[in-house]
Design a protein around this nucleic acid. Structure first.
Length: 224
DNA sequence: CCAGACGTTGTT
DNA sequence: GTCTGG
DNA sequence: CCAGACGTTGTT
DNA sequence: GTCTGG
């Protein structure tokens, strides 16, 4: 992603279970130097009008790309605060039951890093003057690969579009055309479930192994 | 004009 | 901060 | 969204 | 079952 500016100093621990509210690296263009900085930011966008002590809105870790240029929460960030969110995989659950849904990993070729389209926010806590960086990941319709698993997917950008997405030039054409499902190259594979769980998503529907509905002889349930 | 919302995914 | 609904 | 907690009295 | 934290 051609980071040529500042890089945050804290090392990152390996993490394959990244969740909202944790601090994660994003890439953004420095307003003054034009360089690409790697910055730690909270996954879960803090709106500029956030007041100290009040809870932030509960679901700002994704932003629908449809209408992002108009929606109050996202409008300004879409104009001036776009970023890349580096990743090499993401997960989605196929909603076939209320619980214990099968989990799938989505990658490009298994290991290659890629970038989600993100928006960032810099919020100064009026109480103590501390700055909090935060971000959201844009979503769009699922592509052909994701369709069977989930109706939505994160926007994945092509490297050739990184510069335009990161640009903070408001006189340029807004990069709405980049907010579309990844046309090709997405790979899907099931993630091994917890021990005792069926892995075949179709078979699993009919073979509950845990909880109150576990009635299969020979399987150990929750009770001791 | 002021007041109040500002968000997502999935609805077993 | 900015938009929308009343 | 999913995962994990969810509680009180009284005290090793 | 439902709420909260991540």
């Amino acid at each position: 992603m051609r980071i040529d500016g500042h890089v945050f100093e804290d090392p990152l621990a390996p993490d394959d279970d990244i969740r909202p509210t944790t601090m994660q690296p994003i890439v953004r263009e420095n307003r003054d130097t034009g360089q690409r900085d790697l910055v730690l930011a909270r996954w879960g966008f803090i709106p500029p009008w956030q007041k100290p002590g009040e809870k932030p809105p509960p679901t700002t870790f994704n932003a629908r790309s449809e209408g992002v240029e108009k929606a109050g929460m996202w409008k300004r960030a879409f104009e001036r605060h776009r970023c890349l969110v580096p990743a090499d995989a993401f997960f989605e659950w196929q909603k076939i039951r209320p619980r214990n849904n099968p989990k799938f990993a989505f990658t490009l070729d298994g290991t290659a890093p890629f970038a989600f389209a993100g928006l960032w926010s810099a919020w100064k806590d009026p109480a103590n003057g501390h700055w909090l960086q935060s971000f959201t990941v844009l979503t769009t319709d699922a592509n052909e690969t994701m369709q069977p698993i989930h109706t939505r997917m994160p926007v994945i950008l092509q490297p050739k579009d990184y510069a335009r997405w990161l640009s903070r030039d408001e006189s340029a054409q807004p990069p709405l055309d980049l907010l579309r499902p990844l046309p090709e190259g997405l790979h899907c594979e099931p993630v091994e479930n917890e021990p005792g769980m069926a892995t075949n998503p179709i078979a699993q529907k009919d073979i509950p192994t845990k909880g109150a509905d576990a009635d299969q002889p020979g399987l150990f349930g929750d009770s001791l």
